[in-house]
Design a protein around this nucleic acid. Structure first.
Length: 828
RNA sequence: GCCCCCGUGGCGGAAUCGGUAGACGCUGCGGACUUAAAAUCCGCUGACCGGAGACGGUCGUGCCGGUUCGAGUCCGGCCGGGGGCACCA
C-alpha cells in the first residue's frame, strides 16, 4: 500500500481525541512538567507561518511525555480585542460570534496539524467565567493602591478613538492602524507597575533560561538609572524646584536650568514676563505635538525671565523652558550642564548660554560635550576637585544629603500601565461613580460585571457601552443612591498576564485559582512564543505574577522558568509595484534581461513575514491535502533552527515527504532479522543525538540525524532499530509513526510507549579515523582500533606515505596529539 | 547616536570544548527503470590546477590584522544585514 497520509492522519487524530490522551488530572500525584504556547488571539487565519511554534511545542510535548517527563499542555484563547470589534462594525457580525467561529476554525486547524492540547482546561478570556477574575484581580490591586485613576497625558489614537500604552506606540504611530499618535490629557485607569520596577529589573538576573536578548530588551525598557534629586532654590517663587540628575558630580557646571513646558511651576514663573503671551502659545504648540513631532522639530526653548540658585556655586542661573525635557521622566526639570551633556550642549550653543568645564579629560576643541562617566576628573568643582568621576559622584551625593538639599535617587524609564480602553469588546472595569461617594469599587460578590451583548455597533466616536443605559445605570453599594458604571474596558494584556495560572483550575467558580495546585505546577517549565512579546506581554505577566505573590496566593515571583522564542517563517517572492497588494511567488515570475517581470511591470524581490496582508501565506490545508500534516511538521522543523527566521520553500517540502515515504516503505517490506553491529551502533548513536537535540531545541539537526539513520537502514532494517526510529520520529511525525507502530503489532499508542535509552557501550565505534596534519594542514588519515593508544597512532603516522612525503627532509619540532581526533606534526 | 545579534556552496543549513569545513535536505547534472512521463532508485554537485583514474595540490566560512601547533569558532579594527532603545537628564 502506498503511503496515504490523509486517511491515516484523520484516523489517528480521532483516536487521540477519543482516548483523551492529552488530558491531565492536575491533582494527581506524580511528576509535573508544564509547558505552554503563548495565548493566541483567534483571528481565524492560521497559516504555515503560524504553525511553527505550535508544531515545535507539540514535538517537545510528545518527546517529553514519552520520556515520562511531560504532563500538562493546555491551550486557551486571548479572545477580547479590537479586530473582533472592527469586524462587527464592518460586517455586522457580533464580536462574540466572530470570535467563537474563529476559535472553532483554529481548533480544527490545530487538530489537522496533529497538535495535542489538553482541551479539558480550555478557556477563553471573553467568557464571564474568565474575565470575572480579571475584575477580581483589578479590585485586589485597587485595594492595595496598585490600581488608580489618574489624569495624565496619554497616547491617543485618533483613528481607533482610544488610548494606547507606550508599548503600543511604534515610531510615534499606533501599533494597529499606523495613525500618528497624539498626546491628550485624560482620566484613565492605571496599574502601578512602576512600584515593581526595581523587582522586575533585579528579577531578570534569576532567569537563567531566558534568551539574553529578551532580558536585555526588558532591562532597557525598565531603564533603571541611578543618580540624585537636588533642590535648586528659586528666590522669586519662594521655593525650590527639584531636578533629577545621573551626574551630580557635574553640578558645579550647571549654568542654567530647563523645565518641561508642562511643569507645574511654569505659569507662575512667566507671570510677569513681557513675552508671556508668545510663550504660552509656544507651550500650547509643544503640548499638542506628538512625541514624534516634538522630537523632529529640534530643540527649542524659551527663557522664563527668572533665575534659580545653583546650590554649590551659589550663582544665579537662568531658568529656561525646553521641548526636550519631558514631564513624564524624572521631575520634569533638569540642571543643564552644557559642558558634559550633549543635549544641554546643543541647547546652550543655540541660545548662547554659558558653558563651563568641570570634568577634565575631554578633547580641547569643545565641539561637543565630554560625557565620559568613568574616566573624567572633577575640576573647578570645589570640594570634589581632583576626584575621578565615580568617586566624585559618591562624595557629592553624600554632601547633597548632608546639607538636606536632596538625596540619592533611582529612577526608571518605565511608566505606569494604562489599562483603560474606550472599547466595547473587553473586560468591564468593575468601578462605579457615585455623586455622593465618588469612586466606588463594585463589591466582590457582585462580580462578574457582565458585558452586555445587546449593544449598537455604529462605528461612530465613543464606546458603545456608554450608550447602553441598563449597563451604565447602577446603584451605589455604599449609599444606595444612583451611580454610573465605568464604561472603559481593560487592555487585553490584562487577560494574558495571569492565564497561565488559571489553566490549573480553569473552571473554578469560587476563586481565581487553587493556590496549592498552582504552587505545585508553576512556574511554567517551558513557555514558547514569539519575540514580539519580549516587552509587552512578558513584562506585564512578570508584574502581575509578583502582585499575586504579594497577595499571598503564590510562592513564586517569576511565571516562566524557561522561555523560547521561535523565529518567523518568511516567504520569498516579488512585489508588484504597480499594485502593492499583488505578491508574485517565485515560480510565477517571468524573466527578461535577467530581471523579473510580470506583464509590463518590473517586480521587486521581497522576503517577508507570512501574513494575509502581504498575500504570501501558504494555506496549511492545501499542503496537508497534498503531502499530509506529518510532512508539513517535519519540513517546518527541519527548515532552520527554530529560533531563527526561516524562508519557506515550496520545493523543499518534497524532501520531508520522500523521507517519510522511505520510512513507510521499510515498514511495508517487512522488518525482520537481527541488525548488523554497524546499524545497532548507529541506532544508539541516534538515540543519544536526538534526545539531546530535542532538549536543546535543535529540532532541525534532530531530524537530520533521523534521516541519516534511515539512510543507514537501507530497505529492510531489523525490528529493534526500526522501532527505535519510529519512536524517535514520533514527536515530529506523529501520525505515520502511530500507524507503523500498530502495523508491527504493537498496542497503541506509540505516544505512550517509552522513549528509547542509548546504550553507551553499543554506541562505541570499533575503529576510528584519526586525522594527520603537518603544520596544521590535513595530509592524511589513519584508522586505528577504538579506544586508540597514542603510541599506535604515532606509529601509524610513520607508515602513511603521503604524510611521509611532507615530512621528508624536515625537522620535527613537536607533535601534538589530540586523543581520538588528530595528530599535528610541526616541522621546520 | 547607544545597546544587542548575525554574515559558511546555486539555496536552507551542519560543524557540542579552538581540532578532518560543507552533515542532512533542496536545486541542478548524469544514469537505471519506463513506449513515454510522473514517481522511485543510484552517482556527481565549493572554486581552481594536475591526473585516464585512484588520487594529489592550491585557495576557501564578509574584509584586514593578531593569538595559537591548529581559528568558521577566541581577540582588535573595518564593511554589510537584522533587531531593540532613543531628547530618559
Amino acid at each position: 500500500m502506498p503511503y496515504d497520509p490523509r486517511e491515516i492522519e484523520a484516523r489517528w487524530q480521532r483516536a487521540w481525541a477519543d482516548a483523551r490522551v492529552a488530558e491531565v488530572d492536575v491533582s494527581a500525584p506524580g511528576q509535573k512538567y508544564y509547558m505552554l504556547n503563548m495565548f493566541p488571539y483567534p483571528s481565524g487565519d492560521l497559516h504555515v507561518g503560524h504553525g511553527r511554534n505550535y508544531i515545535l511545542g507539540d514535538a517537545l510535548y510528545r518527546s517529553l511525555r514519552m520520556q515520562g517527563r511531560a504532563a500538562l499542555n493546555p491551550m486557551g484563547w486571548d479572545a477580547f480585542g479590537l479586530p473582533a470589534e472592527n469586524a462587527a462594525i464592518k460586517r455586522g457580525i457580533h464580536p462574540r460570534d466572530w470570535t467563537r467561529s474563529n476559535i472553532a476554525r483554529e481548533k480544527k486547524q490545530f487538530e489537522r496539524w496533529g497538535i495535542l492540547y489538553d482541551w479539558s482546561k480550555e478557556l477563553a478570556s471573553c467568557d464571564p467565567e474568565y474575565y470575572r477574575w480579571n475584575q477580581w484581580l483589578f479590585l485586589q490591586l485597587y485595594k492595595r493602591g496598585l490600581a488608580y485613576r489618574g489624569k495624565a497625558p496619554v497616547n491617543w489614537c485618533p483613528q481607533d478613538q482610544t488610548v494606547l500604552a507606550n508599548e503600543q506606540v511604534v515610531d510615534g504611530r499606533c501599533e494597529r492602524c499606523g495613525t500618528i499618535v497624539i498626546q491628550r490629557e485624560l482620566e484613565q485607569w492605571f496599574l502601578k507597575i512602576t512600584a515593581y520596577a526595581d523587582r522586575l529589573d533585579a528579577g531578570l538576573d534569576s532567569l537563567e533560561h531566558w534568551p539574553e536578548q529578551v532580558k536585555l530588551m526588558q532591562r532597557n525598557w525598565i531603564g533603571r538609572s541611578v543618580g540624585a534629586d537636588v533642590e535648586f532654590p528659586v528666590p522669586s517663587l519662594g521655593k525650590s524646584i527639584r531636578i533629577f540628575t545621573t551626574r551630580p558630580d557635574t553640578i558645579y557646571g550647571a549654568t542654567f536650568m530647563v523645565l518641561a513646558p508642562e511643569h507645574p511651576d511654569v505659569m507662575t514663573l512667566i507671570a510677569d514676563n513681557a513675552n508671556r503671551t508668545e510663550i504660552e502659545q509656544w507651550i500650547a504648540g509643544v503640548r499638542n505635538q506628538s512625541n514624534l513631532e516634538r522630537q523632529e522639530s529640534g530643540k527649542e526653548g524659551r527663557f522664563t525671565g527668572q533665575t534659580a540658585t545653583n546650590p554649590f556655586t551659589n550663582e544665579p542661573i537662568p531658568i529656561w523652558l525646553g521641548n526636550f525635557v519631558l514631564m513624564q521622566y524624572g521631575t520634569g526639570a533638569i540642571m543643564a550642564v552644557p559642558g558634559h551633556d550633549q543635549r544641554d550642549f546643543e541647547f546652550a550653543k543655540q541660545y548662547d548660554l554659558p558653558i563651563r568645564i568641570v570634568v577634565a579629560g575631554g578633547p580641547a576643541d569643545m565641539t561637543e560635550a565630554f560625557v565620559d562617566k568613568e574616566n573624567g576628573v572633577a575640576t573647578n568643582s570645589g570640594l570634589i576637585d581632583g576626584l575621578k568621576s565615580p568617586q566624585a559622584i559618591g562624595k557629592i551625593s553624600e554632601e547633597i544629603e548632608r546639607r538636606g538639599i536632596g538625596r540619592k535617587m533611582v529612577r526608571y524609564r518605565l511608566r505606569d500601565w494604562l489599562i483603560s480602553r474606550q472599547r466595547y469588546w473587553g473586560t468591564p472595569i468593575p468601578m462605579l461613580y457615585c455623586d455622593k461617594c465618588g469612586i466606588v469599587p463594585v463589591q466582590e460578590d457582585h462580580l462578574p460585571v457582565e458585558l452586555p451583548l445587546d449593544v449598537p455597533f455604529t462605528g461612530r466616536e465613543g464606546n458603545p457601552l456608554a450608550k447602553h443605559a441598563a449597563f451604565v445605570n447602577a446603584t451605589c453599594p455604599q449609599c444606595g443612591g444612583k451611580a454610573r458604571r465605568e464604561t472603559d474596558t481593560m487592555d487585553t494584556f490584562v487577560d494574558s498576564s495571569w492565564y497561565y495560572a488559571r489553566f490549573i483550575s480553569s473552571h473554578d467558580d469560587k476563586k481565581i485559582f487553587d493556590p496549592a495546585m498552582v504552587n505545585r505546577w508553576l512556574p511554567v517549565d517551558q513557555y514558547i512564543g514569539g519575540i514580539e512579546h519580549a516587552i509587552l506581554h512578558l513584562l506585564y505577566a512578570r508584574f502581575i505574577c509578583r502582585t499575586l505573590h504579594d497577595m499571598g496566593l503564590t510562592e513564586f515571583e517569576e511565571p516562566f522558568e524557561r522561555l523560547f522564542n521561535q523565529g518567523m517563517i518568511t516567504k520569498e517572492g516579488y512585489r508588484d509595484p504597480s499594485n502593492n497588494r499583488a505578491w508574485v511567488p517565485l515560480n510565477e515570475v517571468e524573466r527578461r534581461d535577467g530581471k523579473p517581470y510580470r506583464g509590463n511591470t518590473e517586480l521587486i524581490p521581497e522576503t517577508g513575514k507570512m501574513s494575509k496582508s502581504r498575500f504570501n501565506v501558504v494555506p496549511p490545508d492545501e499542503l496537508i491535502d497534498r503531502y499530509g500534516a506529518d510532512t508539513e511538521r517535519v519540513y517546518t522543523l527541519f527548515i532552520a533552527p527554530p529560533e531563527k527566521e526561516a524562508a519557506w520553500s515550496d520545493e523543499g517540502v518534497i524532501g520531508a515527504f520522500r523521507f517519510l515515504n522511505r520510512v513507510w516503505k521499510m515498514g511495508e517490506s517487512g522488518v525482520a532479522g537481527r541488525g548488523s553491529d554497524a546499524l545497532t551502533r548507529k541506532t544508539h548513536q541516534t538515540i543519544a543525538a536526538v534526545t539531546q537535540r530535542i532538549e536543546r531545541f535543535e529540532f532541525n539537526t534532530a531530524i537530520s540525524a533521523l534521516m541519516e539513520l534511515s539512510n543507514a537502514m537501507g530497505e529492510s532494517p531489523d525490528r529493534t532499530s526500526y522501532e527505535v526510529l519510529l519512536k524517535l520520529l514520533h514527536p515530529f511525525a506523529p501520525h505515520i509513526t502511530e500507524e507503523l507502530w500498530k502495523t508491527l503489532g504493537n498496542e497503541p499508542f506509540i505516544l505512550t510507549s517509552a522513549w528509547p535509552v542509548a546504550d553507551e557501550e553499543l554506541m562505541k565505534e570499533d575503529v576510528i579515523t584519526i586525522a594527520i596534519q603537518v603544520n596544521g594542514k590535513l595530509r592524511g588519515q589513519v584508522e586505528v582500533a577504538n579506544p586508540p593508544v597514542e603510541s599506535d597512532v604515532l606509529a601509524a603516522v610513520k607508515t602513511n606515505t603521503n604524510v611521509q612525503r611532507w615530512l621528508e627532509g624536515k625537522q620535527i619540532v613537536k607533535t601534538v596529539y589530540v586523543p581520538g581526533k588528530l595528530v599535528n606534526v610541526v616541522v621546520r
